[in-house]
Simulated scan of single mutants.
Amino acid sequence: MKIKKRTIFRLIWFSLVTIFFIWQWTTYQSRNLPVNTFDNDSKVTIEETNDEIAFLSKSSNYQNEIIFFQGGLTDPKAYAPLCRKIAENGFTCHLIKMDWRMPQWDYKKIETMFDLKNGKYIIGGHSQGAKMASLFVYENPGLMKVLFLLGTSHPRDFDLSGRNIPSIKLYGELDGLASVSEVMENKNKLPKNADLIEIKGGNHSQFGYLGKLLTDNTAEIDLDEQQRLTLDKLIDFFHKIENEK
């Protein structure tokens, strides 16, 4: 009887663990992408390789290009709609695919993908991708032109306050993974004069086209609105940088 109980317990345990991991994996998949996300048109051309999905802008003469790091474990395609919108507004955007979806293992690959010394690259990302973008800036002073961060408490473990790089951080009022209190706690480690902008009613998950991630709070605005606000703030900031040439 003891053996039967133990066997039943193990079956239940492994079943619950399996269900949990399947549910977790599902929430990190991209979903509900706009139907035209990967279509070529008069404004954007899409080129995909093993290392990136490039959204090549054909609508302006802006020289700066965006390097976008995906969040940890997330399907990179979850950020494709935002990257496409960035390109439609005139900035070529490179959405980097990380091996095993882990930016902390693969973030340095951009050193061989791009001629970073030409001074035209804007780097950033979401969540763990934002952490690794800020770490890349920390490790390579003066190399990147601009830093943007979405839904992250970083820089947390290193200090960028002495760096003179134009920076912007967007954070969700209801972010359950990078809370407002954590963002505020580490704001003094951002580059000086960084713009810090709260997305009212926004959460962590809706910076991408994802399911609701574990421990995240329910947003009070819908996905389209959070994406629109994020895009507007980023494009305004990028334009400001262009106008300061």
Rank of each mutant, 00 (worst) to 15 (best):
K4V: 11
K5E: 08
R6K: 10
F9Q: 08
F14A: 02
F20A: 01
F21E: 01
F21Y: 12
W23P: 00
W25T: 13
T26K: 14
T26P: 00
S30Q: 13
R31K: 14
T37Y: 00
F38W: 01
N40V: 06
D41G: 12
T45Q: 14
E47Y: 10
E48P: 01
E48A: 14
T49Y: 04
L56E: 09
S59H: 04
N64A: 11
N64D: 13
E65R: 14
F69D: 01
G72N: 10
T74V: 13
P76T: 06
K77E: 13
P81N: 02
R84L: 00
I86D: 02
E88N: 13
G90I: 08
F91H: 04
M98T: 08
D99K: 12
W100V: 10
W105K: 12
D106Y: 02
D115M: 05
L116P: 00
K120T: 12
K120R: 14
I122F: 12
G124K: 03
A130E: 01
A133H: 02
S134K: 10
V137C: 15
Y138H: 15
E139Q: 15
P141G: 08
M144D: 05
K145F: 03
L147K: 08
L149W: 07
L149V: 08
L150G: 00
S153R: 12
D159G: 06
L160D: 08
S167L: 07
Y171Q: 03
G172Q: 02
G172I: 03
L174G: 02
L177A: 01
V180C: 07
E182D: 14
N186W: 11
K189S: 07
P191N: 09
P191R: 02
N193C: 05
A194E: 03
I199T: 06
I199S: 05
K200N: 12
G202C: 08
F207S: 05
Y209P: 04
K212Y: 04
L213P: 00
L214M: 13
T215P: 03
D216R: 06
N217M: 06
I221Y: 05
D222L: 03
D222T: 02
L223T: 09
Q226T: 04
Q226D: 03
R228F: 06
L229M: 12
I235M: 01
D236W: 03
K240C: 03
K240H: 10
I241L: 07
E242G: 05
N243K: 15
E244V: 04
K245W: 05
